[in-house]
């Protein structure tokens, strides 16, 4: 049964790779425009061995982690305050409602002027991209906690702070993790875009340089790396969420 389900997942991927290789080998279009899978893998090997790929992945990874951690932490903290204090929620909700719909990359021109084209730019963009969804998911999680269990905690002697830390936050975790999981992938998309536009290092910068040299094989390698990183980030948070809530959810 397990073998069958694994095969069901892998077979289409293998079929896709074979089809890609066959079409590319027919030379219907020049190889530099549409390289075969084998050529992409060879280029992947060269980039990996030379260290170019790793250097660029690490540059992007650092920016993603910095922006994502700061943005998420801020989103969770502000979300906790807004979710638990109604007057704060009412005061800030209109401002955040206006800012939330702006795509993270929409801030890029403004931030380029305000903070310059440097390492801080992608970090700031990822911060904005992570902050709002995590904020809203945290507020939703906190407000969604059953009032009954809060009353129960109160009659059992818990202060407001204890109720927050021992009941409300643990029960809001599934919602908070939903926000983190959704934005983990989005952070990679934003960093690639920022690097393409303004930063000379990282996976996005490697892609834009390769485009000017018509190195489609390198671009495809970068896209594969991007895909794996997005997936790995999302799965990490999915795994953590399951680990934390599996026993009781």
């Amino acid at each position: 049964m397990r073998i069958k389900s694994v095969l069901t997942g892998i077979l289409p991927v293998i079929a896709f790779v074979i089809l890609w290789e066959c079409i590319a080998q027919l030379n219907l279009v020049p190889r530099y425009i549409f390289p075969p899978f084998s050529a992409v893998m060879i280029e992947f090997y060269h980039l990996a061995v030379s260290g170019v790929l790793l250097d660029n992945i690490l540059s992007s990874l650092f920016r993603v982690l910095a922006g994502f951690l700061l943005g998420s932490a801020a989103g969770i903290l502000v979300g906790i305050v807004m979710g638990s204090k109604e007057f704060v929620n009412k005061s800030f909700h209109p401002i955040f409602s206006l800012l939330y719909p702006i795509p993270a990359l929409g801030w890029a021109p403004l931030l380029m002027v305000w903070i310059g084209i440097n390492e801080l730019l992608p970090v700031a963009l990822i911060f904005l991209c992570s902050f709002f969804p995590v904020l809203y998911n945290t507020i939703t999680g906190i407000k969604g906690v059953d009032r009954g269990v809060i009353k129960a905690a109160r009659t059992l002697g818990a202060s407001d702070t204890k109720i927050l830390t021992t009941v409300v936050l643990p029960l809001a975790i599934p919602n908070i993790f939903t926000g983190l999981r959704l934005e983990a992938g989005m952070a990679w998309r934003v960093v690639i875009a920022a690097e393409m536009v303004a930063i000379p290092t990282g996976i996005g910068a490697l892609m834009i340089r390769s485009e000017s040299l018509l190195r489609m094989d390198v671009i495809i390698v970068c896209l594969m790396v991007l895909s794996v990183m997005c997936l790995a980030f999302e799965r990490f948070f999915q795994f953590m969420e399951r680990r934390i809530t599996n026993e009781w959810e």
């Binding site: 269990v149 109160r154 009659t155 059992l156 002697g157 009781w248």
Partner: peptide
């Protein structure tokens, strides 16, 4: 306040902490 009234309260929906 409720948390200082020294009360044992069995709620209708029990309100057990699921986590």
């Amino acid at each position: 306040p409720a948390n200082e009234r020294q009360i044992g309260y069995l709620f209708q929906n029990l309100a057990l902490f699921p986590h």
